[in-house]
Nucleic acid binder design. Structure first.
Lengths: 217, 217
DNA sequence: AGAAAATCTTGAACAAGTTCAATGAGTTTT
DNA sequence: AAAACTCATTGAACTTGTTCAAGATTTTCT
């Protein structure tokens, strides 16, 4: 509300409105690709032509469990959570936070065209770029060099998951939280504590007690 | 001992000796590749020429933590464990079991040429095929189609790790063990219980108590 | 075959983490 | 400005899983 009033008075901040008329910023996603492979402008143009821009408001879903995950989604701006709902214990468990520069999807659902186990939901208003399975396959057929980028991306994710598994096995709740503070300092004040607790695998109450103990020093 | 005596009497079972003179069986690793991409005999020959055959006896190490992981290793026969040693609590934590048809390595160490966090050790006598980083890169340069196979392999591993993380977050020790019984029935009587406990993230004693409870039904 | 090592079990005391319930602060919505 | 959410905190009772120690069994080595 406030913001709209403001833009009506000062047209310059229309840029900040991020309306549908704004030009889409492809730099981050091209940087993501060029981080691993060299591509020509032509190849970049083709890649970009396969992407769909999408906005998502806080609390909206990008994917609901049991739906098929039709897209791999790159985050230009905002923050998503991937999580799993445990119906036995009526609880959510966050598997990953995905922020600027990251990719979100239920990989198994995406590649096997089967119902997803994950939900993906916006924790903030988001700007996203999506590519569907057929387009991705077409990209890889047309310019096989993209396979390399795609492969290295999965290697990185594999490394991240392995590190997570090790920490969950080796560390207690307190140490996992301290590690989170070190590894994701930018997320600590961006994401509600109880969601961090869910990611760490402890209850919101217990995380609060952990913080209390740490603060007493 | 017993077996050697036997072979001396009946030469036919020399086949079972698996001596260094036996022909190496490349079928499993070629099946692993052909599961994802079509390759010609020429390509297969080239691929195979990059591989080194290696035998490992039970309890021998394929990789020690802090060494650089120089190879990705395919298991023809036998069983490996990848594990992490937590020096704080003087405890090992198994991240993965790798058996026939699987690949073992410390991925981050391998691709970044940095000290590994994982140990890899034989739980049984093993027959392995190894490829080093330079050879893998050469393979991918020479026949880029192998990127696809490599990429899909990592996708599969990613899916496996994600599933593991979800289960570790959502399930208690008992349920994790029951899930293990379902998912890896062939491993249950092949791997010592305390190692399974380590993989599941519970103490050996507690797993024993879990089994006691389950047996009483 | 006998010794040594690895494996599995059981119990008792303890520690880590959960659940439930109540409270208060901070945000959004109306 | 009030109402309704969301979020964080705290304490008490409870559950899950660990640690330590001892004993029994099985496997491996010589």
């Amino acid at each position: 509300m406030h913001q709209i009033k403001f833009t009506l008075i000062l047209p310059i901040s229309l840029l900040e409105l991020n309306s549908v008329f704004d030009k889409i910023n492809y730099s981050p996603i091209l940087a993501n690709v060029r981080n691993y492979i060299n591509i020509t402008n032509e190849e970049a143009d083709y890649f970009v032509s396969l992407l769909k821009f999408r906005r998502l408001k806080k609390k909206q879903f990008l994917l609901q469990a049991y739906d098929v995950c039709k897209y791999e989604t790159f985050v230009i701006r905002g923050c998503l959570k991937e999580y799993f709902t445990d119906y036995e214990n009526v609880k959510d468990h966050i598997t990953r936070f995905v922020t600027e520069g990251g990719w979100a999807s239920d990989v198994e659902s995406f590649i096997r065209d089967k119902p997803s186990v994950l939900n993906i939901e916006a924790l903030e208003d988001c700007e996203l770029l999506q590519i569907d399975y057929a387009s991705m396959e077409q990209l890889l057929q047309t310019y096989p060099k993209f396979e390399r980028w795609y492969r290295i991306g999965f290697q990185e994710e594999y490394i991240g998951f392995q590190s997570r598994i090790i920490k969950n096995l080796a560390l207690g709740g307190k140490e996992r939280y301290q590690d989170f503070l070190e590894q994701y300092p930018h997320l600590v004040n961006r994401i509600p504590q109880h969601q961090i607790a869910s990611y760490l695998g402890v209850s919101a109450e217990f995380l609060s007690k952990i913080r209390q103990k740490l603060a007493r020093k």
